[in-house]
Amino acid sequence: MTDVTVPEDLWDANKTPEGIVANWFYSDGAEVPEGATLAELMVEKSSFDIAAPAAGTLRIVVPKDGTVRPGSVIARLESG
């Protein structure tokens, strides 16, 4: 199983503590290939794409519009 983690250095958390998950591009339970764009985060005014670090079955931890911080686990990828 692989965690899908918000990179620690994606944004300056001292300036903006939280962002949100703006979009999920796969639904919970979907099989995703490694490198696929999984989600879009919105931090204040900027958006960032999160790619799948491995192939696997997506288990969403933070739903659309949920808040995230650098280091947050937003999903898990179960290897089948």
């Binding site: 591009f25 796969y26 639904s27 979907a30 099989e31 995703v32 290939p33 696929a36």
Partner: peptide, 12 residues
């Protein structure tokens, strides 16, 4: 494999 990918209109 990826028919379950949900795209937004702008990305499509």
């Amino acid at each position: 494999m990826s028919s379950n990918r949900q795209l937004t209109v702008s990305r499509a």
